[in-house]
């Protein structure tokens, strides 16, 4: 169920990025895609009723720590991915602002100097 919702979120983001005409809405759609992927990563490491993955040496030997704690690796990866997507989004917002200054609009149908 959770995974299905996550997939739905990804699809919403992709749909938005492909169909929206407004620069800001496109940026938001990209953010939604990134959030969907991050959520998926978190869910990979999640464990129902798990404990925080913090341990001291005395606890390790023969304990049930490893079978009770959530997986810390995806959490570390998501932190990194969030920082990266923050950088990319900030850059995209900056470019969108410059585009607004030159064209006076956020509508991509009116920003058309280039053709594929």
């Amino acid at each position: 169920m959770h995974y299905f919702l996550c997939l739905l979120l990804l699809m919403v983001g992709l749909f938005g990025a492909l169909t929206q005409k407004n620069l800001i809405k496109i940026i938001l759609s990209v953010a939604i895609i990134e959030h969907a992927v991050n959520t998926f990563l978190i869910m990979v490491g999640y464990r129902h009723d798990g404990t925080a993955p913090i341990v001291d040496r005395a606890q390790v030997a023969g304990s049930s720590f490893a079978s009770g704690a959530v997986d810390p690796l995806p959490q570390a990866m998501v932190l990194t991915a969030i920082v990266i997507s923050l950088g990319v989004l900030a850059l995209m917002v900056a470019v969108a602002m410059r585009l607004y200054h030159t064209y006076g609009t956020y509508d991509i149908t009116e920003i058309r100097k280039l053709r594929g």
Binding site: V30, V37, F40, V44, M92, R98, K113
Partner: peptide
């Protein structure tokens, strides 16, 4: 103008590609 427009297009498509790659990595880890 063209440079900003090209950069925006590139950044949007590039981050979608990166998200695909990250999703692939997450699946492999899973």
């Amino acid at each position: 103008e063209e440079e900003l427009e090209a950069s925006f297009k590139y950044a949007v498509l590039g981050s979608i590609a990166s998200s695909f790659i990250l999703l692939g990595i997450a699946l492999m880890y899973c």
